[in-house]
Design a protein around this nucleic acid. Structure first.
Lengths: 215, 215
DNA sequence: AGACTGCTGTTACCGCAAGTAACGTACTGC
DNA sequence: GCAGTACGTTACTTGCGGTAACAGCAGTCT
């Protein structure tokens, strides 16, 4: 008893409060997009702005905390797929599929993580794209690079090569996924196998079409 | 009679004025980053805000016009590399190198095209990334997809496959380039050949390292 | 000539969002 | 009772995007 409620009545509630605020922010951001104002978020949480600032410093801090939650969840899922016990090709496909399934299941979250800005009024296609994707994409790239370095024999200069590939593959997955999510030109399975084919060197193998030099 | 010099004395100067404004905006944006205010741009051009708005509608319009100029230049360079008369591998490498050389030569322009936001105050690493990259990346992806579809024999469902690859390859190039530009972990030539190796299926060929299942 | 049009440009304002200061309040432990 | 601390508020400042409203200056129409 006793005690301390300081650590129990104040510190723990503080953590809990923070989570509540993040959940409220999540709701607003997922509803209004990244243009959500601090006032709106505070209102959704049933409080006022300065409290948000006391907890998160500034808007960037709030968004970063928000992004971290989702990012961590996605990264865990990817790590699991990456660690599955099967051959390399299957593992690649399952990782791609896990990523694509995630962004397909929660496009709102995805758009927040990748395209945070979204010009104010309806601007048809306001030329922005992934804004804070950086942390997420960078982390995914680094982690994948590490996995490659640990497991694939790349000969000399393997570290740099592995990191290059990590970032490259993540970028490929991201760009293709972003485009696919917008246009839905095919099923997820087709996308996965096309990308895996690309990584498996089908570009090098394919014949030229008649009519000119091949790409 | 009729008409007027309106088309010659007013429309032509209007076009010219527009270019002057864009050049001023370019200077400011390249100096202050994308956080440049309309007031600042207007001041640099020696005029005031409303004129900018009359010419470009809103800030998005200005930025779009600005982005289009640079985007078009980059796309021309890439098309040239893509059309060079040599074998596929060389063409891929030369296209990658053209892109990387461009972003290396004008990192300011690159950052504007890709990461337009850049939180206000010094925010170490404010979690944003490519913001309006969309138009540029999408256009590059589409164009590359078209080139692939025109030249590479992909069998059935070639169209979709080609577009997937187009966006995927562009995304790979973009992500790897973005990371490389920030960390400079190796020379441009190394990066180019590593990425080309990746596209050439070395991931599928490489042996596992001892100690666990290969990636 | 003088009214009309259409461009150039201005100053002065609105609205709104980020961020802050200052103040009040409850609960804790001493 | 008193200090400390987290919680909460109202009210403010600053700065930016965007918009009137107004003014000078061609050239054109009658």
């Amino acid at each position: 008893m006793d005690i301390t409620h300081r650590t129990t009545d104040q510190q723990k509630p503080a953590e809990q409060r923070r989570r509540e605020l993040l959940e409220a922010a999540d709701r607003v951001v997922l509803r209004d997009g990244p243009k959500a104002s601090m006032n709106a978020i505070a209102a959704e949480a049933g409080i006022t702005k300065p409290i948000l600032y006391r907890h998160f410093g500034d808007k960037g801090g709030l968004y970063r905390a928000l992004a971290t939650r989702h990012t961590d969840a996605l990264l865990s899922a990817l790590r699991a797929a990456l660690d599955a016990p099967s051959d390399r090709r299957r593992r690649v496909e399952s990782t791609l599929d896990t990523y694509l399934a995630s962004i397909e299941a929660m496009p709102q979250v995805y758009r927040f993580l990748m395209h945070p800005a979204e010009e104010s009024h309806q601007s048809e296609q306001s030329f922005d794209v992934g804004r804070h994707s950086a942390p997420l994409l960078r982390r995914m790239g680094e982690e994948l690079g590490q996995v490659i370095a640990e497991r694939v024999d790349l000969g000399p200069a393997a570290d740099v090569q592995a990191r290059i590939w990590g970032h490259g593959i993540v970028g490929m997955m991201h760009a293709a996924g972003d485009w696919w999510l917008g246009e839905r030109p095919c099923s997820r399975a087709e996308l996965v196998s096309s990308l895996a084919d690309l990584l498996w060197g089908r570009l090098a193998m394919a014949d030229d079409l008649p009519g000119g030099p091949g790409f």
